[in-house]
């Protein structure tokens, strides 16, 4: 058993990149305070999954899964698996819908709050919450 299996590492290049992309995207979603940047991170995160699926579909030595025009399939030819590609088409559509909805929400948030930075939004919401408590806490206050 080789300690450093070069063939294994290069042979699974797609999967390594999938992990790198996925973690990059995930990190951006968690760490960045700008709402638009979060959506970009989400996009990278989803793109990583597309890469995973398309990698699954690859068959070694396989060619594009397209029928010849005369519909006579040569059994000697290996084709790649087209199913994951089709699934990913669906997932891409879902991703586009998510991105557009997210951006639309950001526009509305900007209109209402005047900012799209998470820390400023939190500050504004904290103030609203404090006001609510001051205004509505008589019920609790009487208790003490």
């Amino acid at each position: 058993m080789q300690a450093f299996d070069w063939d294994f590492i290069v042979g699974h290049m797609n999967y390594w990149l999938f992990i790198v992309l996925m973690m990059t995207g995930f990190y951006i979603v968690v760490a960045k305070g700008n709402l638009v940047k979060k959506i970009v991170g989400l996009n990278i995160f989803q793109t990583a999954v597309f890469m995973l699926y398309i990698s699954i579909g690859k068959v070694t030595g396989g060619t594009a899964p397209i029928f010849p025009l005369d519909m006579e399939v040569d059994p000697a030819v290996t084709y790649s698996n087209p199913l994951p590609h089709v699934l990913i088409l669906t997932a891409i559509v879902v991703g586009v819908a998510t991105t557009s909805l997210g951006l639309a929400l950001i526009v509305r948030i900007r209109e209402e709050y005047g900012t799209i930075e998470e820390d400023e939004l939190l500050k504004i919401e904290k103030e609203i919450a404090l006001q609510d408590i001051r205004q509505h806490s008589e019920v609790i206050g009487e208790r003490g």
């Binding site: 995930f26 979603v29 709402l35 979060k38 989400l42 929400l105 950001i106 509305r108 209402e112």
Partner: peptide, 14 residues
């Protein structure tokens, strides 16, 4: 409601 929907969108998509 807007920030609640946005948070849900991010977490739900993840």
């Amino acid at each position: 409601a807007l920030t609640a929907a946005y948070d849900y969108l991010i977490m739900g998509t993840i």
